[in-house]
Structure formats: structure tokens, C-alpha cells
Computed example of a mutant assay.
Amino acid sequence: MADQVNVSSDPPPNWREAYLINVITLPLSTAIILANLVIILGIACNRQLHNTTNYFFLSLLVADLCTGVALPFVPWMGLSRSLSFTSCLLVHIFPNFLFLAFLFNLVMVHYERYMCIVSPLHYSGMWVHRLFPLALFAVWAPPLLFASLPALGWNNRAASDRHINNTGQECCSYKHVFPNAFIYLEVYGLLVPAILSIAGMTGRVLWITRGQMKDICRLHRSVATRGDQASYQEQQLNLRYSRCVVAVSLTFLACWVPYIIYTHVGVAFLLSEEPQGNSTTHIVLSCTGIGSMTVVPLVLGLANRQYTDPLRKVLHKLRDRWRWRNDSGDIAL
């Protein structure tokens, strides 16, 4: 009887992985969800923001919120579990779809803002404005279709069946769901081109902004009556541009580099053909990689004062009420 009690009280084999995943992902997921809800409510409460540009950004926020909800399930995709093949498909396909939808929405938001800078005269006549439902369809339907390919037959179920015959139990692993060709196509056919396009559009916008800033400085020199005033204005413009470049660079380093590292480490692990790697390393890399990338829309949203005005007003009211209560208490004393 004592032996049976000891056996039944043993923790599950992967309890350390589950504890580590919960410790890392739950606070991060909660912060991502709450921050997205704040920005979504900020856009919804301000009717001046109800336009096509902000609708694209709203779609990105919804995708980011869904990615935050799915974040605790992402690290499990690299670990082996005892699940039926149908359940295994579901727990791998659904997070992958949300992540791809987030990435497609992010590219669309950058593209729409890029065209606003590059071609401002033709901006309102762009196809993404004239065919807004089609643009939304383009950022949600293709990710769903691509992520569903394993469920439509492009999978490694034969390897999963062989594992059942050898061990006598069903095992769920990403190698049983995603063939190597599928992973290579997703990484180098979708993810890498998307990141490069975002980086290219951002660099092009900064270059155009630099040229416009030089034109403004040249105009100030031509009309300024005092050289000191023009020099001060140029210094302010250069300072603002430098801050913008630093902010963009830090955002790229903090948000994209961890994900790039995680992606290439995952591909290297795939090439190694090892049955199970260092689970702790995989958990940390997957959580930091996916989590850091989901911060990009939050940086763009929180930097816009129009999106955060409702929250700022609520905080001001709470502060004023707190001060009023403290003042009333002091007077009563």
C-alpha cells in the first residue's frame, strides 16, 4: 500500500516544463491581452479614429490579442505529449494560424503606412482602401489555409503510426504534424520575407523622412533672418530624427532579434534530427521569441496619444478623486 501511495504521488514526467511555461507565459500573456484591450477600447471610444487606417491597426490588435491568448500553448508545440493525432493537429494548427495571421496583419499595417509616406497623393485611392474587405480577407484567409495544410493531408501521420506501433501509445510532436518541407516553406517562404519586407519599408520611410528633414532645414536657412534661430530649429529636427532612429533600432533589436534567433535555432534542431532537445532552452527561446514579437503592435499603439486618451482620462479622474479624498480627510482632521 505504501508503494502504491508513493507511485501515485509522483509528479507527472513533464511537470517542470509545465511549471516553467506557466511562470514565463502567463504574466506575459496577461500583459499582452490587457494592453491590446486598452488600445482597442481607445480606438472604439474615439469616433475620429474610425477610418480605414485604424481599422487595419484594429485588425492587427485583434490578431495580437489572439496570439497573446495562444502564447501559453506555443512552447508545448516543441515537446512530446500523449495526445491523439486529431488533438495533436488542433494544438499545432490553431496557434500556428494565429501567429501567421498576426504576421500578415503586421505586414499590411506597415505597407499601408509606407504607401502613405511614399505616395501621399494617391494614398486615398489605394486598393487597400477601395477594397477594404478584400484586404482583410488577404490577411486572414491565406494564413488559415496554409496552417490547415497538415489537416488536409500534408503531415507525418505515418511516422506517428510507426511510433504507436513501437511504443504502444500515441505521441504528439511537431514532427508528426509538420513535414520538414512545410517548416522550411513557412520559415523561408513566409516568415523571413515578411520580416525583410517590414525592415525594408521601415528603412525606406526613415530615408524619406531624412530627405524631408533636410528640405525643411534648407527652407529654414533661406527664410531665417537670424542664423542662431535657424541653427536651433535644425538641432531640434536632427534630435527628433535621431530619437526616432534610436527608437526604431531598439524596437527591432528587442522585438525581432529574439524571434529570429528562436526561428533559426528551431531549424537547426530540425536538421539535427534529434528526438528531443533541451526542453528548457526551447521553452525560453519560444516564449521570448514569440512574446517579444507580439510587443511590436503595442509599441506602435501606445506611442499614439489618440489611442491612449481614454485610459489617460480615466487615470486622471482616479488621481483627482484620490486627491480630493485626501484633502477632505485633512480638512476633517
Score class of each variant (00 low, 15 high):
R210W: 13
I198C: 10
C171L: 11
R210A: 09
G200E: 01
R221S: 06
R221A: 04
V192Q: 10
F182L: 03
L219A: 10
E186R: 06
F182T: 04
G211N: 13
L219F: 13
R221P: 00
A194T: 07
E170S: 10
M213T: 15
F178M: 00
T209C: 01
T209L: 12
A199M: 15
M201T: 04
T209M: 14
L196H: 07
I208P: 00
I208R: 11
A199Q: 13
R221N: 05
N180K: 11
V205E: 14
F178C: 02
V223S: 07
G200L: 08
Q212M: 13
C217E: 15
F182R: 01
V177Q: 01
I183A: 09
V187N: 11
C217T: 14
G203Y: 10
P179K: 05
I183G: 00
N180L: 05
K175S: 07
N180Y: 11
S173E: 06
T209R: 14
I195S: 06
P179A: 06
I208F: 11
I198P: 07
E186A: 06
I195T: 09
H220V: 06
P179D: 15
K214W: 14
F182E: 01
E186Q: 08
H176R: 00
D215P: 01
P193R: 06
L185M: 12
F178K: 04
P179G: 10
L191N: 02
N180V: 06
L185S: 10
F182A: 03
V223A: 00
C171K: 02
H176C: 06
D215T: 11
G200H: 02
S222W: 08
L196F: 13
A181S: 15
M201S: 03
P179E: 14
G189Y: 05
R210D: 12
L206W: 08
Y188C: 00
L219P: 00
P193Q: 11
R218P: 01
G203D: 05
V192W: 01
I195L: 10
F182Y: 15
